[in-house]
C-alpha cells in the first residue's frame, strides 16, 4: 500500500500518548519519528527546553527510551561523557543522542557542542529548531528568522538573520551534517538512517514548527514544514565527509506562501519580505554552488 509503509517505520511507540506538548507540536512529531528510526537502543540526553517539559511530571514520563535531563548549556559535553562510558564498558550498539532546542544548540550550548565535534566524539546531536526559546515563552534566539515577532522582539521583529549552525558544524569537518524537515519525510528518515550507520560526531538540524510560537493553526504544522522547503526558506542538504549535497531541489514558491500562514511574520512590510526572500535565495544558491563546485570543507 502506502508511501508510509515503504518508509519501514515501526509501529512500536517510544513517545507515548499523554505527553504535554501543545496541539500540533512539531517537536513531538520530530521526536516520535527520530525514535522510531533509531529504535530501542537509544539514550537521549535533553537540556532545558520544551522537550524537558513535554515528558510529563515525575514519577511518570512519556518517553520510552532511557533519558537523562541535563542543564541547558551542557548537552554536547554530557553526551560525550555517556558515549565514553559506554566505550570503556565495551557497549557498542547503543546510540547516544543529544536532543536539544535551537536555544540550547546555537546559543548557550554551542561551546559544548563545538568541543564534542572537535574531539570527534561518537555522538548524534539533533537540534529541533523551533526558532525561538519556546519553553520560556517565545523569546528570540540566534536561530530566530529575520522579521519574526517574539516576546523579546515584540514591536519591530528580529532585525538579524539567523546563525547558520549546520554550516558551522560542517566547518568542524565532522563525518555527517544534515538538515531535514518533517514535511519531507522520506528525506528525513533517509538522513537519520544514514546518521545511524556512521561513527563519530553527527549533527542533524530539524525544522520544528511550533503553532504557539509561530502563531499558526495547529493543523498546519506539516504543511508549513513542507512550504519552508518549497520556498527555499529551509534548504534540505547534507554534508558528508565535507561534501555538500542539496538533497531536495524544489521549484521555488514565493516566500509569502510560507510566511503568510504564520502570525509571527504578520507585521512584515513588503520591503522586509523582499529582503528576506533575497537572503533565502542567496543562501539556497550558495549551497547549490557549493555542491556544484565539489569543494570540500
Amino acid at each position: 500500500m502506502s508511501a508510509v509503509r515503504n518508509l519501514g517505520l515501526t509501529k512500536e511507540r517510544f513517545l507515548l500518548p499523554g505527553h504535554s506538548a501543545c496541539h500540533g507540536c512539531g517537536l513531538a512529531i520530530n521526536l516520535k519519528i527520530v525514535l522510531k528510526v533509531l529504535g530501542k537502543r537509544t539514550i537521549l540526553v535533553i537540556p532545558a527546553c520544551c522537550s524537558s517539559v513535554i515528558q510529563g511530571p515525575y514519577p511518570k514520563v512519556a518517553f520510552k527510551v532511557p533519558t537523562m535531563n541535563i542543564a541547558f548549556a551542557s548537552t554536547g559535553a554530557a553526551i560525550s561523557g555517556v558515549s565514553r562510558a559506554l566505550k570503556i564498558r565495551g557497549i557498542e550498539d547503543v546510540f547516544v543522542v543529544g536532543w536539544a532546542g535551537d536555544g540550547g544548540t546555537v546559543d548557550i550550548g554551542i561551546q559544548a557542542l563545538s568541543g564534542a565535534a572537535e574531539r570527534g566524539e561518537n555522538i548524534l546531536y539533533i537540534c529541533y529548531d523551533n526558532q525561538a526559546y519556546m519553553n520560556t515563552g517565545i523569546q528570540r534566539s540566534g536561530s530566530t528568522p529575520y522579521g519574526a515577532w517574539t516576546t523579546t522582539t515584540p514591536i519591530v521583529g528580529k532585525k538579524q538573520f539567523p546563525k547558520d549552525l549546520p554550516l558551522i558544524m560542517a566547518a568542524h569537518r565532522i563525518p555527517y551534517v544534515a538538515t531535514a524537515s518533517l514535511g519531507y519525510l522520506a528525506d528525513m528518515i533517509r538522513k537519520l538512517r544514514k546518521a545511524k550507520e556512521i561513527k563519530g560526531p553527527r549533527y542533524i538540524h530539524l525544522l520544528s514548527p511550533c503553532p504557539v510560537g509561530w502563531r499558526h493553526d495547529s493543523a498546519h504544522t506539516v504543511r508549513i514544514a513542507k512550504l519552508a522547503v518549497d520556498t527555499w526558506a529551509w534548504p534540505l542538504y547534507e554534508v558528508e565527509n565535507g561534501r555538500v549535497k542539496v538533497t531536495v531541489k524544489p521549484k521555488r514558491k514565493p516566500l509569502k506562501e510560507y510566511i503568510s500562514l504564520q502570525g509571527r511574520f504578520k507585521r512584515l512590510t513588503d520591503g522586509e519580505i523582499k529582503l528576506m526572500e533575497e537572503e533565502v535565495i542567496r543562501r539556497y544558491e550558495m549551497l547549490l554552488k557549493m555542491e556544484k563546485s565539489g569543494i570540500e570543507f
Partner: peptide
C-alpha cells in the same frame, strides 16, 4: 527517576 507511562500527564 520517572517511569514510562501512557498518559503521563
Amino acid at each position: 527517576v520517572s517511569k514510562p507511562s501512557v498518559g503521563a500527564v
